[in-house]
């Protein structure tokens, strides 16, 4: 069951794993980088570093997408993931007062069970996948994932899911806003000021400044504390 020795006889081009196509080599190297940074991301004790290594992993994945001729997806990945998701994560870390530097309790007590489960899952999946796709090659012709093609199929065949997704995004947006409101963060209701008549301008001005200074109440605690 050696992955490297399985030279498929079905392919007429008589390719073998050891014949270098640049794509494969690059894919492999980038894949290693992705994997490595993913592993570091889930094991490091410095929480912010974890987020940054995640950036590396996701970036690497974008390159993989490129290698697989899915250019639009690759740029969307960079845009969405590296641009907003990771930034959101960093904001989340900041707002939940994640410790800067090493945090001693970054891993829970569950980690050995987690390791076991992960290894089992990895073993199962890899075995399954390798056994199933031993003799399958991807034909990397160019152009399958260009923006033009993507736009075509997206708005021709996948329009309805696209629209549903936008509704989903709206719901998520509204939900996020609602959830992150604090009870105390209300804007104070505007009160009508007292009308004072028959007073000289100087005193009126002073009285007015006094009245305007009143409606302070308790300043709502901004979302940072």
């Amino acid at each position: 069951m050696s992955l490297l020795a399985a030279a498929g006889s079905l392919d007429p081009a008589a390719r073998s794993f050891l014949s270098p196509t640049g794509v494969e080599i690059v894919f492999l190297l980038v894949g290693l980088a992705v994997l490595g940074s993913a592993v570091i991301s889930v094991t490091t004790r410095q929480l912010v570093h974890a987020a940054l290594w995640l950036v590396v992993a996701l970036g690497g994945l974008a390159i993989e997408f490129l290698l697989l001729t899915a250019e639009f997806v690759a740029w969307v990945q960079v845009l969405i993931y590296l641009g907003s998701v990771v930034v959101l994560v960093l904001f989340g870390l900041m707002l939940t007062k994640a410790p800067i530097g090493r945090s001693p309790d970054a891993n829970s007590g569950n980690r050995w069970v987690a390791l076991g489960v992960a290894l089992a899952a990895a073993g199962t999946l890899v075995t399954l996948v390798v056994d199933a796709f031993r003799t399958s090659w991807v034909d990397l012709g160019a152009g399958g994932g260009s923006t033009r093609v993507t736009g075509e199929y997206l708005f021709r065949y996948w329009v309805l899911p696209f629209e549903a997704l936008s509704v989903l995004l709206l719901a998520a947006l509204v939900g996020a806003i609602v959830l992150s409101r604090t009870g105390k963060g209300r804007v104070p209701k505007p009160r009508a000021g007292k009308l004072r008549a028959g007073k000289p301008v100087g005193t009126n001005g002073r009285a007015a400044s006094a009245t305007t200074a009143r409606p302070t109440a308790s300043t709502p605690p901004v979302q940072e504390s």
Partner: peptide, 19 residues
């Protein structure tokens, strides 16, 4: 996390058994 671990372990086990 404990719940999830048990869940995933069960899934892996089932997958292996089915395979």
């Amino acid at each position: 996390q404990a719940y999830l671990s048990a869940l995933l372990a069960g899934v892996v086990l089932l997958a292996v058994l089915v395979a």
